[in-house]
């Protein structure tokens, strides 16, 4: 077994064992999808709530996995000295990053499959032509959120990473259009939100997967900036121990 495969196997075994990780990556997005599709409490711009909530939930799923699960998991690995110990093994940084990326992408594929299947059950019928744009957005979002998560994990103690990442998750969940569209936020707050990666990713997924929708150019710019700056900052400031 290659070092990379050995690392992926171990990470997978640990990830599936930690139920709190599954809760964050699957439980919360599913809950948001089902609840806000069935209960008409938020003013979505589409006739059927699910038509807005489903693509927004895809963005939420990516944020959960790439920022929260990856960040908190890595933060504790750093605190426990796991990363330091791995640094003295032949695994190497490149394969470690590759293994983490594999895990994030695998998780996201499962999340998207489950969420899309459930959304279909709730009557969601997105335009097929929107998928390439949506998937491009989810990929950029993954880079942006992973960069943020790893920046926190690589600079703060494990518990501080846990607290700040969860706090950030909540703020971005509420201001990112993942439940309440940002057009319904006060304009000053919406203007700030447009500079953050969550609202930008939701704009891309909803813009491309809502029939007749379109993606505002600002969203691609915001997302591209975060997708570049996040990983660069993480690479620059990440400390292994």
């Amino acid at each position: 077994m290659s070092p990379y495969a050995s690392q992926v196997r171990t990470e997978l075994a640990l990830a599936t064992r930690q139920s709190e990780q599954l809760l964050v990556s699957l439980g919360i997005p599913l809950l948001v999808l089902v609840f806000f599709s069935l209960v008409d409490v938020v003013p979505v711009p589409t006739a059927d709530a699910v038509d807005y909530v489903a693509p927004a939930t895809l963005a939420l799923a990516v944020m959960s996995t790439a920022m929260v699960s990856l960040g908190i998991g890595t933060g504790f690995e750093r605190q426990y000295g796991v990363l330091k110990r791995l640094g003295a093994s032949p695994l190497g940084t490149t394969r470690w990053v590759a293994a983490k990326t594999t895990l994030v992408v695998l998780t996201e594929v499962v999340q998207v499959a489950v969420l899309v299947a459930v959304a279909f059950g709730l009557g969601w019928r997105p335009p097929v032509t929107g998928w390439p744009e949506a998937i491009g957005g989810l990929a950029l979002g993954t880079l942006a959120f992973a960069g943020l998560g790893l920046l926190l994990a690589g600079t703060l103690p494990g518990l501080a990473t846990l607290a700040i990442t969860n706090g950030l998750y909540l703020v971005l969940l509420l201001t990112g259009g993942m439940i309440v569209p940002i057009d319904d936020l006060p304009s000053w707050l919406a203007n700030i939100a447009r500079l953050l990666p969550a609202a930008a990713l939701v704009e891309v997924t909803t813009g491309s997967l809502v029939a007749g929708g379109e993606v505002g150019g600002w969203a691609w710019i915001t997302l591209a900036v975060w997708a570049t700056a996040g990983p660069l900052a993480a690479a620059r400031w990440f400390r292994w121990s």
């Binding site: 171990t10 640990l14 064992r17 930690q18 690995e77 426990y80 000295g81 796991v82 330091k84 110990r85 003295a88």
Partner: peptide, 14 residues
């Protein structure tokens, strides 16, 4: 080279 850190280095969940 094999090394042993003074403490830690192993996940508690593993």
């Amino acid at each position: 080279v094999g090394i042993m850190l003074q403490d830690g280095g192993i996940q508690p969940a593993i």
